[in-house]
């Protein structure tokens, strides 16, 4: 296999990743009125590049080193092709897609079709983390929201407004950091079999992939997908949204340290409910929330079967 084909596919997948997450990064920030489109893009780009450079290597072995080993060329190609096809279709359809779940499903399907030995224990660990992540995020968000409310209760309206605006910028930076570290590292790590490239080459490639994601973010950062998760699901105050993002960022960071791929939507849904529960009254779009949760199961299964079908041909 030409060694550049998986890298090109990783580049395409990273582009789709940037596109899919552009709303949640840039769109939300622009929507808050805190920063312009250009300022939001710059801030998120800095966050993403830092995340990729400092912690992107932590998830490079999440698939090839955990679910099965050794990884073959056909497993890599099938994983990347299935992931690209599925994520592109869903992103074009403005449906939030969990990249990590898609790639794990595709990788498991490709490994299964290649008769590779699957480490069921590692797969179970990843799936268990996905189940726990929304609950953990809910808990962290609940506590964060309480802390934010306590800290701001005696401030003036002007000060609270300023903190809200500053908070949006900071969480956008941090969210871009953890997204870059967890997801771009995962995509890169899936693109090579055998021995890992040198750290200098790895960092350079990771940064290049981050640049691709940034281009997609800049092109498509006007809302869309984030509108589904944020605006249509729940009605939250600015501080509620900030707390939800803080919870998401912390849980995603922990996942990165454990080399477990996790998606922002998996955490953010939990975070939003955590913020809503502090008020005891929540207006929830139940149909939409069920659809999003169902997608966490349906999409990785779809990726699994798609990879199973593609593997013999690659």
């Amino acid at each position: 296999m030409d060694e550049y084909i998986p890298l090109v596919l990783a580049g395409v997948l990273t582009f789709v990743f940037g596109w899919n997450n552009s709303g949640i990064l840039i769109g939300n920030e622009r929507g808050s009125g805190t920063l312009s489109g250009l300022e939001s893009t710059i801030l998120c780009s800095v966050g993403m590049l830092l995340g990729v450079a400092l912690e992107g290597s932590k998830t490079t072995k999440s698939l090839g080193g955990m679910i099965t080993t050794p990884t073959t060329d056909s497993i890599i190609l099938a994983t990347l092709v299935a992931s690209v096809l599925l994520t592109f279709a869903l992103t074009a359809g403005r449906i939030p897609v969990t990249f990590s779940a898609t790639m794990v499903g595709a990788f498991a399907g490709a490994a299964f079709a290649s008769s590779a030995v699957l480490r069921v224990g590692d797969i179970a660990t990843i799936v268990a983390f996905w189940a726990i992540a929304p609950i953990a995020t809910m808990a962290v968000t609940f506590l964060s929201y309480k802390a934010i409310q306590r800290a701001t209760v005696n401030l003036s309206l002007l000060s609270v407004d300023a903190y809200n605006r500053a908070g949006v910028g900071l969480v956008s930076l941090a969210l871009a950091f953890v997204l870059g570290a967890n997801n771009i590292g995962l995509i890169y790590g899936t693109s090579f079999a055998g021995s890992q490239p040198s750290s200098a080459e790895a960092v350079l490639t990771l940064l290049s992939l981050a640049a691709v994601a940034i281009v997609a973010m800049a092109l498509f950062g006007r809302g869309g997908v984030a509108g589904t998760v944020g605006d249509r699901l729940l009605s939250l105050s600015p501080q509620g949204v900030l707390a939800a993002f803080i919870g998401t960022i912390l849980v995603m960071w922990v996942a990165t340290q454990l080399a477990i791929p996790v998606s922002v939507s998996q955490c953010l849904i939990g975070g939003m409910f955590g913020a809503a529960f502090t008020k005891k009254i929540a207006i929830v779009n139940r149909r939409l929330s069920l659809e999003v949760v169902a997608s966490w199961v349906v999409i990785p299964l779809a990726a699994f079967f798609l990879a199973v079908v593609l593997t013999p041909f690659l």
Binding site: L158, Y163, A166
Partner: peptide
């Protein structure tokens, strides 16, 4: 006014309220 070293977040808003 809310500020960090070198950065003020509410100068414009304070002026508007005044």
């Amino acid at each position: 006014m809310v500020s960090l070293p070198g950065v003020t977040f509410s100068r414009k808003e304070n002026a508007i309220v005044k």
